[in-house]
Amino acid sequence: MSEKHDVSGVPTTGHVWDGDLADFTNQPPKWWMLGLAASAVWVVVYWLYYPSIPVSTMGEHFKGFGGWTAIKEMEADKGAVDAVRGKFEAKLKDMTPAAILADSELTEYVKRSGKVLFGDNCAACHGQNGVGVHDKDGLFAPILNDDDWLYGGKIDNIHESIAGGRQSMMPAQKDLLSAAEIDTLANAVAKGQPLSTPLFAGKGCIACHGEDGKGMEAVGSANLTDKVWRFDSSVEGIKRTITYGVNSGDPMGRVAVMPSFKEAGKLSDAEIKKLAVYVYKFGGGKADAPAASVEAPGNKSGK
């Protein structure tokens, strides 16, 4: 319904309030209307280009003429990331972990890109950034950023540990030693002075832990004289370790198993190398030679 206003002569909507109030039906500016039309066209184009109809018929949905999918977009984005990483990855593929470590640019790349790899594969046991994970029995998996290594802290040792896994064994002593002997040994070890009791040599502890009590990297036995503890530093905790052993099969024994990541087949050789460098760079890695050392000279042995 449209009629002209009696005074202005402009068409109105036809509704009249209070006797003489009416709405003009003036057109908006032309460019504005063109914009409206253009956006209507845009909507149609957009709907046809993208998969935009949220109804499926016969198990099929409208896929849009542009062929866009979220997966493709993600792949393209991933391609962009891979393009940046590609040159580093290609380079380190054929290098030894030690050579990667010697190349400061590659080391920097590994430090920055290794976080996800570590988080996905290592952090479950070793904690984010290798801080170690404690459970009710003590330390569940070793801290990786200190300088104490059961199997050696050189880059090749670390690489070997990740690739091949580690599992050592300490037999349960409950049938071999009396409670009093275990108590004496535990107290001596807790003080960091295992040699203070003749039992240490007499009962054969030195076979694995060494005559000086500093452990042997070859068998992964702990250094009993330093300040870093594999499981628990309390006398009670040490007693338990001695009594029931480690990986001894005893239900009360401690369990310490590092799986082989090469055998598991989950990680590529390059990824294992990257992880070795990443872990080395936490701060505890040990230099091969006395050369350009990142570590002050100090304790050289594992636990």
Binding site: N145, D146, D147, D148, V228, N299
Partner: peptide
């Protein structure tokens, strides 16, 4: 300063910050 871990105890008993 590194926040995780805040510090690391080394085998000689010293404390290291990153």
């Amino acid at each position: 300063p590194e926040r995780q871990p805040l510090f690391v105890r080394l085998s000689d008993g010293s404390i290291q910050n990153k």
